[in-house]
Design a protein around this nucleic acid. Structure first.
Lengths: 197, 197
DNA sequence: ATATCCCTTCAACGAACGTTGAAACAAGCG
DNA sequence: CGCTTGTTTCAACGTTCGTTGAAGGGATAT
């Protein structure tokens, strides 16, 4: 079929196709963001800005995305906190305008660094504290073999979790620093785990 | 301080330390799972099973985790769907018992393959359909320069998004297939993006 | 068959979350 | 100064999501 057939079939003018494409993409990015634990609107707003040649002001964004000014304001604040959108002043217009950070990989890096890394570090800290608790239990058990055996077993397993965290952290750091990342440590760990069970 | 000092300070017996360590770890894994878009209970349950030498039955899990039988049943069903927990029958006990899949990397792989990959593929499909829509708009515009310029710009940007999806997919595939993963394509793309802006 | 035990399903509740609209606020302008 | 215009904050609303407890279903033993 001819290139414009699809749009023609729907009886829509070219301009409508433009905004339909925009919304489709916004929705796609929004869904992805949602899957990754962010608010869907953050993805939608960023996408509309990313697909716009010039910076856009609030009213225009509200209209295109069909959201209230309040929600837009809050979402933009969060996007700015993540450094994903920045304000821009357009000559002869009092309104503040916004434009998307277009260095996409930089965005991903920032998120990885500030959210995932923090989370994994937190988990690792907890696991290590649990390990300490178990060391204490062994010392206190004063020879009760049931307790000692159980503590030992759990320590082994927790050590595996801790190692997984460490490998994950180094992988994250590799990604963040932009160097090569090698998953073979993960595989090695996995194989070590399989062997034991 | 001596190894058991912490537990001693809290005035708890070694056995209490054992389950405290268990719950701490369960909570840590639960939080991580939550961050990644799963239910927190899935992580908690898996962890308790992972830290247990023998398979556990429902009542024991309910008691340790303080959740209802209904919730446990649903969560276990989901864990089994992900292949993360499997049932086991214990000789002389009618109850069904459960044990954790201990090949942790295999778990991660499965999730990456079935969830993230699907999502990125879906997003890519939508972006490509948006690109098609824009091609149609250009064809239909019959020379209107405003429309054409806008469509062209959006197509460029959408192509960037599509490429990012493709790079992400290949990275995911590399992780899933367990081979090395190189993030340099991502960096190259990122730099291409920076240059333009 | 009936009874017992265990697992699953589901309606209903409550908490958490996203969203709105209006009110407060800030900033330029007459 | 007020008046206008643009932005942020926030209480209230509606929805979604996790969780419970009880009812239903399926085994196995008596």
């Amino acid at each position: 079929m001819s290139p414009g057939a699809e749009a023609a079939r729907r009886g829509s003018r070219p301009a409508a196709s433009l905004s339909r494409a925009e919304l489709q993409a916004a929705e796609a990015v929004g869904s992805l963001m949602e899957l990754w634990g962010f608010r869907r609107q953050l993805g939608r707003i960023w996408t509309v800005l990313f697909l716009s040649e010039r910076p856009l002001a609030a009213p225009e964004l509200c209209e295109r995305l069909q959201i209230s000014t309040g929600l837009l304001s809050m979402s933009l604040a969060e996007l700015r906190r993540w450094g994903v959108v920045k304000g821009a002043t357009v000559p002869g217009d009092r309104k503040e305008h916004f434009e998307a950070e277009t260095h996409v990989w930089r965005l991903v890096r920032r998120v990885l660094a500030e959210r995932e890394r923090r989370a994994v570090e937190g988990a690792l800290a907890v696991v290590e504290s649990a390990l300490a608790e178990l060391r204490g239990a062994i010392a206190e058990s004063a020879g009760d073999p049931r307790v000692r055996a159980m503590a030992r077993f759990r320590m082994e397993r927790l050590e595996e979790l801790a190692n997984l965290c460490r490998v994950g952290l180094s992988l994250l750091k590799a990604l963040i620093d932009g160097s090569r990342a090698d998953v073979s440590p993960l595989r090695a760990l996995s194989e070590a785990l399989s062997r034991r069970s």
